[in-house]
Simulated assay, not measured.
Amino acid sequence: LGIFLLLCLFPRRSRRSVPQTLPHNADFAFSLYKKLSTHPEAKGKNIFFSPLSISMALSMLALGAKGNTHSQIFSTLGYSTLTPDQVNEGYEHLFHMLGHSQEAMQLEAGSALAVHEGFKPVDKFLKDAQHFYEGEAFTVDYSKPEVAVQEINKYIAKKTKDMITDMVKTLDPQTVMMLINYIYFRGKLEDPFEVSLTHEFDFYVNENTKVTVDMMERTDQFDFYHMEELEKQISRDHFKNWEEKLFVTLFKISAFISLQETLQEMGMVEAFSGAADFSGLIFNSHFCILIFSQVLHQAVLKVNEEGTEADAALIVELRLLSGWLSEIMVLNRPFLVFILDSSTRSILFMGKVNNPTE
Rank of each mutant, 00 (worst) to 15 (best):
Y155C: 02
L61P: 10
F49Q: 09
S279D: 10
L197N: 13
G2I: 07
V248C: 05
L98F: 07
G280K: 14
N304L: 08
V213S: 11
A42Y: 01
I152M: 14
L126Y: 05
E117Q: 15
Q20C: 14
H116T: 04
P145K: 04
Y184D: 01
Y184E: 02
E265K: 12
G187I: 05
L107K: 00
V337D: 04
A148S: 08
S326A: 15
I315A: 05
S285L: 09
M178A: 13
E244H: 14
T76S: 07
A157D: 03
Q174Y: 15
H131P: 03
K144W: 01
M105N: 02
P121F: 08
P121G: 04
V330K: 12
I54K: 05
N208K: 14
V18Y: 01
I73M: 10
E217D: 03
L61D: 10
L107Y: 02
A157R: 05
I156W: 01
K169I: 09
E305L: 01
E108G: 00
L5C: 15
Q106E: 11
K154M: 02
S17H: 05
L22C: 09
A129L: 09
F28N: 00
R236E: 15
F185W: 08
N68K: 10
I234N: 00
Y155W: 13
I289S: 07
S71G: 03
T209A: 04
T249W: 09
P356V: 04
Q150L: 13
S343P: 08
K154R: 15
F185Y: 08
E309S: 11
Q150F: 04
S111M: 13
S50T: 07
L296E: 05
V122K: 13
F74K: 11
T21W: 11
K34P: 06
N241Y: 06
I257M: 12
D214Y: 07
L281K: 03
H238I: 10
D277K: 09
N208M: 04
L336Y: 12
W324A: 12
L9V: 12
T139E: 14
R186Y: 04
I289D: 04
I164F: 06
A275F: 11
L98N: 00
H286R: 13
K43D: 03
S53N: 11
L9I: 01
E244Y: 07
T308Y: 01
T21C: 12
F224L: 09
F278M: 12
S31F: 01
I3V: 14
L301M: 14
S17K: 15
A299Y: 11
F278E: 02
S111W: 00
S101M: 03
I328G: 09
E89N: 11
S59P: 05
A62C: 11
S322C: 10
K144Q: 15
F239E: 15
L259M: 04
M56I: 15
Q72A: 07
S273V: 08
L58C: 02
R15D: 10
G323L: 06
G78M: 05
E136T: 14
V295T: 03
A276L: 13
I152D: 06
D166K: 11
Q72E: 15
N241K: 13
